[in-house]
Simulated scan of single mutants.
Amino acid sequence: MTALLVLMLLGAIMATLAVGALPVFHQFGWSFLSGRDWNPVSGSFGALPAIYGTLVTSFIALLIAVPVSFFIAFFLTELCPQRLRGALNGVIELLAGIPSIIYGMWGLFVLAPLLASHVQPWLSHWLGHVWGLGALMQGPPIGIGLLPASLILAVMIVPFITAVMREVFAVVPPTLKEAGYGLGANTWEVMWDIVLPYTKVAITGGVMLGLGRALGETMAVTFMIGNANNIDIGLFNSGNSIASVIANEFAEASDPLHASALITLAFVLFVIAFIVLVLARALISLGNRHQ
């Protein structure tokens, strides 16, 4: 019965978003998803810049957060002294509980000036002339843009992914590790050749949990992404995400078509999250089949 209620709630959310999106699809059709112009004054709406910003920031954040989370979990489970382990676990749990708006304010007042003064000039100096990377370093030196938003997202999802990895690493049977050590493997080899293959299914779930958090994050991204409807390869150029567009404009959307466009963006974000969930389940099923 409880599972049925959950399915009914999910169906009600989808139906509400779909009904709210009908005016936009009647007006623009599927070109709404590929349109690049977002101008509420002229009644022109295109979702592609927001979709682009959401996907780019989320996947860059994932590329940064997964290795960092792995090494933190590796240290906590294999190398960290017992007295220090409890304190570090508490810090990770505290980071997971900090509201996103606090992360956004920290990013705007601390991280952005640091990036503008030190990191961006250094990256532009050393990578700006490298073929294929120079275009990625483009953007005004203000510490706000796609990469800064990705960095703040990475900081936010590291505690979630680390917590999952830490727990699954801790439940690996000690006999498996002891067998590896008995064969002459060192700590890193045991982790890479025994622990990771044993826990890859659960790790996939943790990574997808972090991706889901990154896709739907609102306030921190709104502070850091620049809030401009651009599609640009430069990682320091301003952009937009679906969540930031909705947060910035929904309260002032007096025009029905404008409100419908924002609801349609929410529906698109819902679909993206659903696709991520389906891919996660497929990866987990594939992993279970090969174990």
Score class of each variant (00 low, 15 high):
residue 65 A to M: 08
residue 93 E to N: 15
residue 270 F to E: 02
residue 189 E to P: 03
residue 241 S to C: 06
residue 203 I to A: 08
residue 42 S to K: 13
residue 194 I to P: 01
residue 253 A to Q: 05
residue 218 T to W: 06
residue 155 V to K: 02
residue 13 I to T: 15
residue 264 T to K: 02
residue 141 P to K: 12
residue 151 L to S: 06
residue 88 L to F: 14
residue 33 L to M: 09
residue 177 K to T: 05
residue 144 I to L: 13
residue 108 L to T: 01
residue 250 F to S: 03
residue 268 V to G: 05
residue 198 Y to K: 14
residue 237 N to Q: 15
residue 230 N to D: 05
residue 27 Q to Y: 09
residue 101 I to C: 04
residue 113 P to S: 10
residue 88 L to N: 04
residue 92 I to P: 06
residue 127 L to H: 08
residue 245 V to F: 01
residue 220 A to Q: 11
residue 102 I to M: 10
residue 153 L to T: 12
residue 101 I to A: 09
residue 258 H to A: 10
residue 241 S to Y: 09
residue 282 A to V: 01
residue 144 I to K: 07
residue 241 S to L: 11
residue 40 P to V: 04
residue 7 L to G: 10
residue 205 G to R: 13
residue 153 L to R: 15
residue 154 A to K: 12
residue 172 V to I: 10
residue 108 L to H: 04
residue 105 M to F: 14
residue 215 L to I: 14
residue 171 V to H: 15
residue 71 F to T: 08
residue 94 L to Q: 00
residue 282 A to F: 07
residue 145 G to Y: 08
residue 179 A to I: 04
residue 276 V to A: 15
residue 272 I to A: 00
residue 263 I to W: 01
residue 274 F to G: 10
residue 145 G to M: 03
residue 53 G to Y: 09
residue 274 F to T: 12
residue 47 A to W: 01
residue 21 A to T: 03
residue 118 H to E: 06
residue 21 A to P: 03
residue 7 L to F: 09
residue 127 L to T: 04
residue 62 L to S: 06
residue 246 I to T: 12
residue 83 R to S: 08
residue 246 I to D: 01
residue 223 F to A: 03
residue 141 P to I: 11
residue 25 F to L: 15
residue 17 L to Y: 03
residue 33 L to I: 13
residue 207 V to Y: 08
residue 116 A to S: 13
residue 64 I to P: 02
residue 224 M to N: 13
residue 153 L to Y: 12
residue 28 F to G: 02
residue 272 I to W: 06
residue 284 I to W: 00
residue 274 F to V: 08
residue 79 L to R: 14
residue 158 V to R: 13
residue 20 G to W: 03
residue 222 T to D: 01
residue 50 A to W: 01
residue 46 G to N: 02
residue 216 G to M: 04
residue 23 P to T: 08
residue 282 A to T: 02
residue 75 F to Y: 15
residue 37 D to L: 13
residue 154 A to H: 05
residue 186 N to R: 09
residue 49 P to G: 06
residue 186 N to H: 07
residue 150 S to G: 10
residue 79 L to W: 10
residue 111 L to A: 00
residue 178 E to M: 09
residue 8 M to L: 15
residue 279 L to G: 04
residue 112 A to S: 15
residue 13 I to M: 14
residue 53 G to N: 07
residue 1 M to V: 03
residue 282 A to W: 00
residue 36 R to S: 04
residue 189 E to F: 01
residue 110 V to W: 13
residue 155 V to G: 05
residue 155 V to W: 03
residue 206 G to C: 11
residue 38 W to E: 02
residue 41 V to Y: 13
residue 69 S to W: 10
residue 273 A to E: 00
residue 6 V to M: 11
residue 166 R to Y: 04
residue 278 V to S: 12
residue 202 A to R: 14
residue 156 M to C: 00
residue 65 A to H: 08
residue 174 P to N: 07
residue 174 P to G: 04
residue 14 M to F: 11
residue 196 L to D: 01
residue 161 I to K: 13
residue 274 F to N: 14
residue 221 V to D: 02
residue 55 L to Y: 02
